[in-house]
Design a protein around this nucleic acid. Structure first.
Lengths: 197, 197
DNA sequence: GTCGAGCGAGCGAACACTCACTCACCATGC
DNA sequence: GCATGGTGAGTGAGTGTTCGCTCGCTCGAC
């Protein structure tokens, strides 16, 4: 079956199984058998909807992409400063939320594997690009309104996203307690430093 | 053979083969056959020195750890500000240096897989912890000397390392051109903002 | 003659993926 | 009301291949 004609309900169910399996085992040890175990289907049942394991992972990525985009879209904070802080709150996962941490670490692992896997690269690129744009838009808006100093929106966005992704990549993955709180405070102080006096 | 009694020359050679194979194929698709192809030994020859694939990867990590620690140690810049900038220069790898980029992305992939692999966790934790300490020491020194504002050394270190690791994790892995320069400028501006007026 | 260093061949297990088949469900003809 | 045949949704039992790893062996140095 072509990947784009999988019924939404089935796509959601399989993406969710991939998510659970990834969070538990990581990408390097992900197998279709483990995905099947997390779903209500057999291994062969997964192949009824998707032609390859990679396509199932892409289904998971697209679902995550939608979820993140919706989360960023639904921020109802007012003003650039509060909006930027809200974005950071979404991007810095709580280390005590094991499920969310597992998913974010898995996405990080997929990111690291992107240079070797063309299929994964595109959805990942879209996801990061979109987040980068959302942050840059907020910063640009803040500069125009005179809330933020005259900083470069793209550069600032790259800095913020690097910091939040990096936190996931090393502190969260290694279970370094306390680093999350340290980072949150420093990031908050950084946002303070963006404000005009 | 116990891993800690492998002759240094052999360890260096195998670690280098792991490095090359990781940079080319990534962790998820790393096989002992590919490591052997990058070395001057057969697959069985690798097992003469190491009891498992994971031990070979640890050998690579320990070698990287030494290399990074030595690089950080050899910084001969004067004063906290210049030293901090020098550390950032080391941690943000040039996107045009394909070999260095490949290694850093591979380490990022190993980091992401650490939650599922106890053997890899320890050397990775040591490496990140050490880098964090080096940065925190520089910041602390700067604060004491009155060069930097009264910031939290640990928090600032976590922020800087997150930003540089995150850059590797998403921009470098996805081949997002220009983001490296954007980040370098924003990070430099951030260091400016740490200085006392 | 012994021993460290290393290799070719191959082991069992696990992998991604396939295939022949089942079964519930429906539309049609009588 | 009921037999008939087609169809979508799924599966158990495999397929060939690749994996990490082992073993019996060779060979040169002392």
């Amino acid at each position: 079956m072509p990947a784009d004609s999988v019924p939404p309900e089935q796509k959601a169910q399989i993406a969710n199984a991939v998510r659970a399996a990834l969070a538990t085992h990581g990408y390097a040890r992900l197998t279709t058998k483990k995905v099947a175990a997390e779903s209500e289907k057999s291994e062969a049942g997964l192949y009824y909807y998707y032609d390859s394991k990679d396509e199932m992972i892409v289904a998971f990525l697209e679902t995550s992409e939608d979820y993140l985009a919706r989360s960023l879209d639904e921020i109802d904070a007012e003003g650039p400063e509060e909006r930027l802080r809200a974005v950071c709150d979404i991007l810095i996962v709580d280390e005590d939320d094991a499920a969310a941490a597992g998913v974010n670490i898995a996405v990080m692992e997929l990111l690291s594997h992107a240079p070797h896997n063309e299929t994964l690269r595109e959805p990942l690129l879209r996801m990061e690009r979109h987040t980068l744009d959302v942050i840059a838009d907020i910063v640009r808006d803040g500069v125009e309104r005179g809330v933020f100093r005259e900083v470069d929106p793209e550069g600032t966005a790259a800095f913020v996203l690097s910091a939040t992704d990096g936190y996931t990549g090393f502190a969260l993955a290694l279970g370094m307690e306390g680093v999350g709180d340290d980072l949150r405070e420093s990031l908050s102080a950084y946002i303070d430093s963006l404000l005009v006096e």
